[in-house]
Structure formats: structure tokens, C-alpha cells
Design a protein around this nucleic acid. Structure first.
Lengths: 144, 144
DNA sequence: TTAAACCTTCATGTACGCTTCAAGGCAAGC
DNA sequence: GCTTGCCTTGAAGCGTACATGAAGGTTTAA
């Protein structure tokens, strides 16, 4: 399949696929006799892997380091494992930061009083908010 | 407190604090008679809020939109709520992407066989991996 | 009074991750 | 033969989020 079809199949732009190849995030792609890229399913799967890790915030550089280890002939199992664990730790911290922020926003959301559409539930929450005031001030609220 | 102390207290660089003020992510900071910033705890709390949201991947632009609504005099409760919910949805999707990537890497990690330090646990996992082979090939593995 | 250690503003530089542009080649259909 | 539509490479451009540097002001301590 040509690069445009691969782009449509993966949702990754042609330019980005070329960029990933140049940065060795995906293996060197076979060419047709005239020099056009001929992309097979193995490449598609690697593009999807890259997409998933990128979406999770893994940098191009880290991704390349990781993939290089796998492409090397030597037995890098230990380093691979260490790199995996390192990256996992980074991602888990990110996830936890994200969850903390989600909790923060959810808290605010649950303490909102919408004057236009006050539901009984919200009214009850408003009362609780009032009761919590002192406690919340000890928590040094950010005002948002 | 001066900007350097605020920087040390929050872990945010002086340059970044100035930048946040310029971009209205934090309120205009009071000045000493000679024009130096005099940062109080209210500002510190806002810096921390910004830090948390930034760590969660909220863009400067979205953060500014959000904060502008709160600073406005009018009753924007509905818009604020909508914005909050919008941002929450974005963050939850991010968190789920992250979790999917974590699961992916954890799967790899659990199927690793470290030749140098094989523990009994890992040996057992190796056997299971062998048994899983056909299943995994149906899952179109990415090779990593 | 001179140096250190802060501060200010404004301008420019930097890293990342692509996107876009320029210049051209190849193949098919009118 | 010419347009359309795909492809190629290489270079340059771009948005984000700051970092860094220049030029200068103030306070503190020797």
C-alpha cells in the first residue's frame, strides 16, 4: 500500500510517517522500483504502536531509544526491561498527576451552584459547601 | 516574598512565573516601591493550581480561558461548568490513553524472560507465554 | 565604593514534533 | 501532449512553553 493509504488507515499524516521513518521509530520501509514507499502490515502495526506511546506522552527520543534496543542483535533483555520499567514509572506518575487534576476539577464541579438550573442535589451540595467552609480554608484553596 | 523565593517554594522558574503573569494565568502581582514583584500566598496557591493543571496537560490557552471566566464579574456559572466538564473529558481521555499504554507496556514486561536473572516467577511466566503464543498472534502483535 | 546578588523589561533563542513548501519524477486518462 | 494525482527529497516554517541574554536599577556587606 502507498503512503496515503497507510496514512488513512492509521490516521497519521504522510509527513509524520516519513518523519517517523527518518527518526527510526519505524523500520526502513521497502520501496517500489520507482522509489515509492510500499507499506505492509508490519509497518502499520509499528505506526500504531508509536501512535499509542505518543498519545501516552512518550517522547520521540525515548521511543527511539526503546526501539533501538529491540532492533539490536545483542541480548539487551536487561536494559530493555529497565527501560520499560523506567518508562512505566514515568507514565504512572503522569497518570496519577492527571487523576489528581481530575479529582480537583471534579471537586469544583460538585461544589458549583448553577443559578439557572439548580437541582435538589446541587442545593444539598451547596449546604455542605457552606458547612465545609472553615475546613476548606485550612486546605488553602486556590480560588478556582 | 520575592520572585526567587516564590520560585523555590513552588518549583516553578522565575521566568515561568513572569510568563504566567504576562499570560494572565495568575493575577497581576503587587510591586514593591522599586518595582519588584511582591508575591503573597494567594499567588503561590494560584501558581500551584497552574502547575497542577499544566502537569495534567492543560494548555496555557485553555487555562487562560478558564481563569478569565472566573475573573469576570458576570455570573458565568453555566459556562464555567461547561468549560470544566469539557476539560474533564479531555483529561479523562488522556488518562485512559495513558492507562492503555501502561497496560501495553506491563504486558510486555510480564512476558519478558531475563536470561541473567531468571526468577522462578519469570520461568512460570515464560511457560504461560509459550501457551499464549497462538492467541497473541491473532492479536496482531507489534513486535515490541 | 565596589562587588555581589537580587531585581526589572524587552528581545531573541531553543527544543519538540511535526507541517508546509519547493522542485521535480512517474503513471493514467482525456 | 497535457492535466491530474500520486509520489520523492530537502529545507524551511510554525506553535507551544518557556530559557537565556542584554542592559540597567537597587540593596547589602566588606
Amino acid at each position: 500500500m502507498n503512503i496515503k493509504e497507510a496514512s488513512e488507515k492509521t490516521g497519521v499524516s504522510s509527513a509524520a510517517i516519513r518523519y517517523y521513518e527518518k527518526e527510526s521509530l519505524i523500520p526502513a520501509i521497502d520501496r517500489t522500483p520507482v522509489g515509492n514507499r510500499d507499506i505492509d502490515d508490519r509497518i502499520i502495526r509499528r505506526i500504531r504502536f508509536v501512535t499509542q506511546m505518543r498519545a501516552a506522552g512518550m517522547s520521540i527520543e525515548n521511543l527511539r531509544r526503546y526501539i533501538e534496543l529491540f532492533d539490536a542483535q545483542e541480548d539487551n533483555t536487561k536494559e530493555q526491561k529497565a527501560l520499560l520499567q523506567e518508562q512505566l514509572a514515568v507514565m504512572e506518575e503522569k497518570r496519577d498527576d492527571l487523576q489528581a487534576a481530575i479529582d480537583h476539577l471534579n471537586y469544583k464541579l460538585n461544589h458549583f451552584y448553577d443559578h439557572m438550573e439548580a437541582t435538589e442535589e446541587e442545593l444539598r451540595q451547596l449546604e455542605r459547601e457552606h458547612a465545609d467552609k472553615l475546613t476548606r480554608e485550612d486546605d488553602t484553596p486556590d480560588g478556582f
